[in-house]
Design a protein around this nucleic acid. Structure first.
Lengths: 141, 141
DNA sequence: GCAGTAAGTAATAAACTTTCTCATTATTAT
DNA sequence: ATAATAATGAGAAAGTTTATTACTTACTGC
């Protein structure tokens, strides 16, 4: 039994504010460690556990998105409206991809499984611009 | 016994055979640790590192699939033809979903990004049958 | 068969990501 | 300002995956 209840008395601490601001300041999808590095420039004494705890809390309350995309680390996204992602197989970078969300795919899925469908996510794999130009300048012949 | 297409110099050891057989014997998508447990019933002295190393090698050679779906652990799949997955948000179980792969989505993506698209994967989130019936008996009341 | 060599294994250590514990600090309501 | 308590920081701990190492096994050409 899982209910989405945001913590009753969630306090607005400096740490939370800065974490959210830093996450919102980038269009990339940083890992917890990367957020930690960004935040530490402004709050040098913050603990890594605090970053993890708050990213998790914010994700639970829907304030941010926790992306469980490929790779070993989870990534976080301050843009909470539904969108798909693409990950570079060479450098691991994750970008948004501006593709309309295919809502009808959920209905198709519902009739193909006994699961109760909640959502779906599409993750593309590809080679990003900088990695592609570095690796294969002769591929368009 | 099926013919296994091994990369040159890759030997078909007992460990590899058993790992592959055990993985192929289930329709679930076990984690490395679960494969380890299954294999250990037949080869009690096998090491966890051996399981990891060989799952990784087999995934690289295309013999099996390594799934980087949600959750903290990677999962492995002996079925290598393209298909989508669905993960239970309650118990973390991952199942195949029999939904035709949307090839055209790659073309749409190609025109929406400067990445060179290689592939895509769709992962659904939902509640599986057993979790659903266990969690919400109040819906029948 | 047998030496020589390459590949694989088991065990262990190590790296890395994430979660947990707890004494202390900071925030909120009074 | 004070009390109540949520949150923090520091470190330990847990969990997953990779790397190292010494030993074993299998393949090669003789």
């Amino acid at each position: 039994m899982e209910m989405i209840d945001l913590p009753p008395k969630m306090r607005l601490t400096t740490q939370r504010q800065v974490i959210l601001e830093e996450l919102a300041s980038v269009t990339s999808h940083p890992t917890a460690n990367e957020v930690y590095d960004m935040v530490r420039r402004r709050l040098p004494r913050i603990g890594l556990g605090t970053v993890y705890r708050n990213l998790e809390l914010m994700a639970e309350s829907g304030l941010i998105l926790k992306l469980e995309v490929g790779g070993t680390q989870k990534r976080f996204d301050a843009t909470t409206d539904l969108h798909y992602h693409i990950r570079c197989t060479a450098c691991g970078k994750v970008d948004d991809i501006k593709l309309p969300v295919q809502q009808e795919i959920n209905k198709m899925a519902a009739s193909a499984t006994d699961y109760q469908i909640l959502s779906h996510h599409v993750e593309f794999s590809g080679v990003c611009g900088s990695c592609g130009s570095a690796a294969e300048p002769s591929s368009i012949n």
